[in-house]
Amino acid sequence: MLLWAALVGLSFPAVGVMSELPPLSLTALRFLIACMGLWWLARCSPDFLPDGRALPLYALMGLCLAGFFGAMFWAAHHATALSMATLFVTVPLLAFLLGAGFGVERLSWRLPAILALGAAGALGLAIAESMGQGGRLRFGIGEAVFFLGCLSTALYPVLSKWGLATGRLPASAAVRTFWSLGLGALLVGLAGLVVEPVARLATMTGRDLLLLIYLGLFSSALTFWLLQRATAVLTPGAVTAYSYLVPFVSMLLLFVRDPGRIDWAWLPGSLLVIVAIALLMRRGRAAG
């Protein structure tokens, strides 16, 4: 999950520099590239072909993925970076609450306390970044769309954990990732054909294509394969809590690009995030 957080953190700058292309169609292409990368690994599993109970669940999981990435592509041009980073902090708590509703989350005070600590740290990092950019918090249509995307991505590990617990999904993380991404690509691609000017994809530049391939292979295929592996042994709230490291990764990238912008304002948030992740890992070892 530490590797997952690093890859997700690297995906936000990549999305931000892409041209403003149709988000649903772009997401469908990203998922298809991810499926091509996962094909051999998933095909080797004896549980590769889904049965009648798994197929509807894969479709729902695919919609969750499509909802988040479609919202992220669209909101990247309609919301501030600070607002998106702040809203992303809600994902672990949303996953915890949804997981409790599905009966796959352990109800105790420790995990919510760790989630609150990590959320405070991640928010502190987001505010520290905005101080150097003159950014400010706001909530408009872009932020509303991105929050729906956050709700979608919080539901994804919950559905996966529930599917594993009820025997509807196979043990192979590659198979679960392949089919959820594949059906997500199909559904969001059909929606894109209906509501978007798909012809605008022809304006995609060579840089856009390279970034899309990177996002498909590393920020979709690899990250969701890692997420599926972690979901088998962790609860949804614990899995998504590692997203608090995403702004920490952004801070490290900023330090590499522009060391002069890092000051003491980054310290409180960084310490809170590090403490929260350490407590989360200690909790996981104790549970194991």
Rank of each mutant, 00 (worst) to 15 (best):
L60P: 01
R285D: 12
W264P: 02
F139K: 02
A286P: 05
T235Y: 03
V15S: 04
M84C: 02
P170G: 03
W162Y: 10
G142I: 07
T235D: 13
T27D: 13
I277D: 01
R200T: 03
L155V: 05
T177E: 05
A230M: 09
I213Q: 09
L234S: 06
G184K: 08
K161C: 04
R136E: 13
S19I: 11
I262M: 10
F88E: 01
L82P: 00
A85M: 03
A202D: 12
A113C: 15
S130M: 05
L151P: 08
L271T: 02
L148W: 11
S108I: 12
F69K: 07
F146K: 00
A185T: 10
Y242A: 03
V194F: 15
P22D: 08
R257N: 15
V233Q: 04
A66Q: 07
E105T: 02
L254P: 03
P13I: 13
L201G: 06
E143D: 04
S25A: 13
G37Y: 07
T223E: 12
P157M: 06
L24A: 13
E143K: 04
V246M: 06
R53D: 09
R285Y: 14
R207W: 15
W162M: 05
A128L: 01
L2R: 10
R229C: 15
S108G: 12
F73Y: 13
M84Q: 05
H77I: 02
L280D: 01
R285G: 09
M204W: 13
V17P: 13
E196F: 14
P197L: 12
S180M: 14
A14P: 12
G167I: 05
L222F: 09
A120N: 00
G67V: 09
A85N: 02
L245N: 06
E20C: 10
S172H: 06
Y244H: 11
A122R: 01
R176C: 09
A119E: 05
S243E: 03
R168I: 02
L164K: 06
V145H: 10
L7F: 15
L183D: 02
L38A: 03
F102K: 00
T223R: 07
S172L: 14
Y242N: 06
L201T: 00
A85V: 05
L107V: 14
I127Y: 03
M36T: 06
R30N: 14
F73Q: 07
L164P: 07
A238W: 02
A154S: 12
I213K: 05
L97E: 10
T203K: 08
A42I: 06
T153M: 14
F178W: 11
V195N: 10
L226M: 10
H77K: 13
L227K: 04
L26W: 03
A287N: 04
R283Y: 12
A59G: 14
R257A: 15
L29R: 08
G260I: 14
